[in-house]
């Protein structure tokens, strides 16, 4: 296996692992949102501004989970594509070797058609891989967008929390955990994108 395919395998496999971490964190956010909702409910008027925010956080977490679930399916098909491309490339290389080894063979020309076909299939795989990588990058961009939005909301929550009297600390803790989670998601997804962006244009 050459370095290019090896790192392609690693890149695709790393997406799956980064995404499963994102999933865990997104679930944490959704839990934090439920928590915040309960606190805001108890705080009543003091946390009036906080209540819609909790719904919003919850919505965001749900969307992130859905998005990651669909990206995971995509990443799996990308992995299969990588396996397939690897297989086609090996075959093509072997067919080229056959052409070299069989120069003086009576039926050497009969391998021309399989060789040509193998080349086309291999190139198709490579093209499809690049196409799929581009789409995956777009989807990852959407997750990053959610993470950025979550951070803005967290900042707003902090302001709202300051109005909440004795609930200030617990609401601030919620804001803190949303911010931290969003930050983690942002970093993980960023790593996926860097790993993949190598394969977008080469």
């Amino acid at each position: 296996m050459n370095i290019q395919t090896k790192s392609q395998f690693v890149a695709v496999a790393s997406i799956t692992s980064e995404l499963s971490a994102v999933m865990v964190v997104a679930k944490e956010i959704s839990l934090a949102a439920a928590n915040a909702k309960a606190i805001a409910f108890r705080a009543g008027d003091k946390a009036k501004g906080f209540q819609p925010i909790t719904d919003f956080i919850n919505e965001l977490a749900k969307e992130t989970i859905e998005l990651v679930t669909s990206i995971n399916v995509y990443a799996l098909s990308l992995y299969q594509l990588t396996v397939n491309e690897y297989r086609k490339t090996i075959a093509y290389n072997k067919f080229e070797l056959i052409a070299e080894l069989s120069k003086d063979a009576a039926h050497a020309h009969s391998m021309e058609e399989p060789l040509e076909k193998a080349k086309l299939t291999m190139e198709n795989c490579q093209r499809q891989f690049k196409r799929d990588v581009k789409q995956l990058l777009d989807q990852l961009e959407a997750v990053m967008h959610h993470a950025r939005a979550a951070r803005v909301i967290a900042a707003n929550s902090r302001i709202e929390a300051s109005q909440a009297g004795e609930y200030l600390q617990s609401l601030q803790a919620v804001a803190e955990s949303v911010d931290k989670a969003a930050h983690t998601i942002h970093d993980n997804v960023q790593r996926c994108r860097i790993a993949l962006s190598l394969y977008r244009n080469n």
């Binding site: 072997k94 056959i98 069989s102 009576a106 039926h107 009969s110 391998m111």
Partner: peptide, 13 residues
């Protein structure tokens, strides 16, 4: 690869 190259002396693919 060596097998296929050898067979091509006897039969087309």
């Amino acid at each position: 690869a060596p097998m296929m190259a050898a067979i091509l002396h006897h039969a087309p693919v």
